[in-house]
Computed example of a mutant assay.
Amino acid sequence: MKKERFEYGSGHSTPWHAHASGQLYWLSHGVMVIETELAQWTVTPGTVGWFPVGLSHSAWTPGRVQGHSIYPEPSSCCPFPSHPGIYGADAFLMSVLTRLCRSASDAGPEDYQGTLLKLLGYELSLGDPLPLQLTLPTDRRARNVANELLKNPDCALNQSQLAQRWGVSVRNLSRLFQQQTGLSFSQWRQQAKVVASLQWVLAGLPVSEVALLSGYSNVSAYIDVFRQRFGKTPGQFRGK
Results as ranks from 00 to 15, higher is better:
residue 96 V to F: 02
residue 145 V to N: 01
residue 54 G to I: 09
residue 88 G to Y: 02
residue 212 L to A: 12
residue 198 L to R: 10
residue 19 H to N: 14
residue 49 G to N: 07
residue 70 I to V: 14
residue 64 R to S: 14
residue 44 T to G: 08
residue 162 L to C: 04
residue 104 A to Y: 06
residue 32 M to C: 03
residue 32 M to Q: 09
residue 135 T to F: 00
residue 223 I to M: 08
residue 176 L to I: 05
residue 37 E to L: 13
residue 117 L to C: 07
residue 240 K to Q: 08
residue 183 L to N: 02
residue 231 G to E: 00
residue 59 A to C: 13
residue 73 E to M: 11
residue 218 N to M: 05
residue 84 P to L: 10
residue 138 T to F: 03
residue 125 S to P: 03
residue 113 Q to P: 06
residue 141 R to Y: 03
residue 68 H to V: 12
residue 203 A to P: 07
residue 147 N to E: 09
residue 20 A to P: 15
residue 138 T to G: 04
residue 60 W to T: 12
residue 33 V to T: 10
residue 193 K to S: 09
residue 218 N to V: 11
residue 99 R to F: 05
residue 15 P to Y: 08
residue 238 R to L: 08
residue 145 V to G: 02
residue 170 V to P: 05
residue 223 I to R: 15
residue 10 S to F: 03
residue 11 G to Q: 12
residue 141 R to D: 04
residue 29 H to C: 12
residue 18 A to C: 07
residue 90 D to C: 12
residue 81 P to Q: 11
residue 140 R to N: 05
residue 64 R to W: 07
residue 208 S to G: 12
residue 105 S to K: 12
residue 46 G to T: 13
residue 232 K to G: 04
residue 204 G to A: 08
residue 27 L to K: 01
residue 212 L to D: 06
residue 189 R to T: 03
residue 157 L to R: 13
residue 76 S to G: 10
residue 137 P to W: 00
residue 76 S to D: 14
residue 153 P to S: 05
residue 229 R to P: 02
residue 79 P to Q: 07
residue 17 H to T: 02
residue 47 T to P: 10
residue 132 L to I: 00
residue 137 P to D: 00
residue 1 M to T: 15
residue 41 W to S: 13
residue 141 R to G: 07
residue 146 A to H: 06
residue 224 D to M: 10
residue 79 P to N: 09
residue 6 F to P: 15
residue 187 Q to M: 00
residue 93 L to C: 08
residue 20 A to H: 14
residue 26 W to D: 01
residue 77 C to K: 06
residue 68 H to K: 15
residue 84 P to Q: 11
residue 227 R to Q: 11
residue 176 L to V: 07
residue 18 A to H: 13
residue 143 R to D: 02
residue 96 V to Q: 04
residue 129 P to Q: 04
residue 16 W to S: 14
residue 100 L to K: 12
residue 93 L to H: 03
residue 177 F to Q: 01
residue 114 G to Y: 02
residue 30 G to M: 02
residue 110 E to R: 14
residue 60 W to D: 06
residue 174 S to Y: 00
residue 62 P to S: 12
residue 161 Q to Y: 00
residue 57 H to M: 07
residue 41 W to T: 08
residue 20 A to L: 13
residue 107 A to G: 11
residue 79 P to I: 05
residue 235 G to R: 09
residue 45 P to K: 13
residue 109 P to I: 03
residue 42 T to K: 15
residue 218 N to S: 11
residue 194 V to R: 06
residue 72 P to I: 10
residue 77 C to H: 07
residue 227 R to H: 10
